[in-house]
Design a protein around this nucleic acid. Sequence first.
DNA 1: ACAAGAGACCGAACAACCTTCGGCCTCATT
DNA 2: AATGAGGCCGAAGGTTGTTCGGTCTCTTGT
Lengths: 151, 151
Amino acid sequence: MDHIDRALLEQLQQDATQSYAALGQAVGLSTGAAHERVRKLREHGAIRRTTADVDPSALGYGVLAYVTVDSTRWMGDTAPEFAALPEIVEAHIIAGNASVLVKVRTASTEQLQDVLRRIHAIDGVNGTRATIVLESLFERPASPYGAGAAG
Amino acid sequence: MDHIDRALLEQLQQDATQSYAALGQAVGLSTGAAHERVRKLREHGAIRRTTADVDPSALGYGVLAYVTVDSTRWMGDTAPEFAALPEIVEAHIIAGNASVLVKVRTASTEQLQDVLRRIHAIDGVNGTRATIVLESLFERPASPYGAGAAG
DNA sequence: ACAAGAGACCGAACAACCTTCGGCCTCATT
DNA sequence: AATGAGGCCGAAGGTTGTTCGGTCTCTTGT
């Protein structure tokens, strides 16, 4: 994972449809060498997959909310129960007052309420606190640079 | 935006590297028709871009945190100031106690502290509350289904 | 009812690209 | 100094992207 790999990741985050020839030229490598580098990045899991970034509003998701979930039991093995709700796009175990933080996208506030109801139905859950997003300033992938020298 | 478009989006979210022939076969269309559909999905902004999903830990980001930001002024036009910090991967204006919610990835808690310091330096910011993520259960794209009928 | 037009699909053809391979170079090891 | 591994380049062939003409099905207007 050197600076060329980071440059490749940066390029592929911006546009994964570009050719290996263009990719190689962007980082100063031949087509074959760029291909080999990217193949290894995939193989080692640095690139988990290449995916289409879909606009949530095009899917009818106009409402975004973060919900903290309180519980009376250990939530470390409840991933399937949260994943079963398609409106939940992220779920994390957190330190602090609540046990779990989930990110929810719905078409309406009524539908958000329904998701909260279904979260309450999960075993051990005894409370939720929803925070509605009024406007998203930006959402972007993690930068391959800026993580480098922690000191 | 019919059920075929949604099936195409589902396919492309899972794997954007598959051929148009495979894509067409998955949704019951010819190669040319699948290509034309996807072209229009891009043109209309439903597909914002196709991108490599990079593992944050491969970039050295071992720490994930959500930070609520309190402020003494209107934060609706501060997107550039938050975007200037590469460790911030999301920023939202929220309803509720705080003004802004940001998602932060860093290599260490020391680096997280440094990000908090730089957030404090933004004009109008007078407080932050960080919530550390202990374990991510999952992070996934929004489902093309499940947004449709609210009932 | 019927003609006209738009939109979408199919199948095929050509250009562009992916993928692999042999050969070369560099560097670390012995 | 010899050896082996790893990475790069350039080229070749098989695969894919992209375009285009023709056909079909709806919708629109008279």
